[in-house]
Design a protein around this nucleic acid. Sequence first.
DNA 1: TGGAATGATGTCAGTGTCTGTCATCACCGT
DNA 2: ACGGTGATGACAGACACTGACATCATTCCA
Lengths: 197, 197
Amino acid sequence: MARWQPDSRSRLEQAALALYGERGFEETTVAAIAERAGLTERTFFRYFSDKREVLFGGSGQLQELLVTAVVDAPASATPIDAVTVGLDALGVLFVGRRDFARQRQAIIVASAELRERELIKLATLAAAVADALRRREVGDPVAGLTGEVAVAVFKIAFEHWVADDNTQDLSHLMREALAELRSVTSGGSPSVRPSRG
Amino acid sequence: MARWQPDSRSRLEQAALALYGERGFEETTVAAIAERAGLTERTFFRYFSDKREVLFGGSGQLQELLVTAVVDAPASATPIDAVTVGLDALGVLFVGRRDFARQRQAIIVASAELRERELIKLATLAAAVADALRRREVGDPVAGLTGEVAVAVFKIAFEHWVADDNTQDLSHLMREALAELRSVTSGGSPSVRPSRG
DNA sequence: TGGAATGATGTCAGTGTCTGTCATCACCGT
DNA sequence: ACGGTGATGACAGACACTGACATCATTCCA
């Protein structure tokens, strides 16, 4: 018999998800999460740096997958092509996890603090993609802008995927969003020019 | 003789800016800010919802200016053109304020908490731009994507403007960033050409 | 085999953010 | 004068988070 139950981390994650869903994020205390997990408040903070972070354990894996795919894309691929390959790789990560993603997203959008945390995770992701592109000899500011584009596409497709009665898969929605973005940025009139138009 | 010194709000803002700059954000207590402003901690929280918000008083004005310009852009303007008009309008807001902007930005980039707050302000701005475009009969997802593009362009140009020895004005840098973005999104397989990087 | 090292957890005290509540007191209109 | 108003102070308290030390099953090794 082990002295402690195993999987403290995942028990804390599950307890937090449940309580945030039931009572809301702000109304849930860390003490309550720890109690439901059969642990103490102090132990919660040993696993998670703060009360929000317990919802973002998967962000590291997401970033690793995307960065690896971008770096390993064919040498002939343009920056935007490499990013497209990366986004395709993300599709598999979410297969079969739509219900979980939906529950988690409902909690996040309901809390300003959690939305802040999500945004900085996405910004970190964009920076990581930009770095990956630079390893492909892509210069600035193209690398930075392409990183922003990748995350914008992911974000919009993800929101669409999680929303209500959508049945298409995430990869498909990401390709759609990218196509839309192309049409937006190519929609300006010729009179609008970088050099003092 | 007034019982209290006037301009409590701006005294608190100045005290916070000074202390965040001297000691750093995390190392500065609200009590210290209030004391330097000749007020109490409780009064600080009557003016600002939290310790970070004291640095973001100008975001409302920024948003109003951008949204108004987008809404009032010529009816013939495409979504991306309307946004370009809006970004031009922002240029004047920062004229002569580069030193202040630089000092404030140095504080923000040094703190993860403040970066989070900045990101949600920018996300709110993007949403406001999207709403403004919808008032121009622009549909989704073009409105949302164009809002993201507007903010990405502003963000990158602003960072460049604040950085080191740059002498060009903000409006010019925003037009440059937009042109770069166009080249990024048109660099994929469907319409060819390797990017310059 | 027995004792020391290890590692996850508990306990406790303390700091700082933020909120609710009530008191204070100059100013203002009547 | 007098009561209303509005900005501020004073105070208590909840909660997030941290540092320091204690506990104790497991494991390692002489």
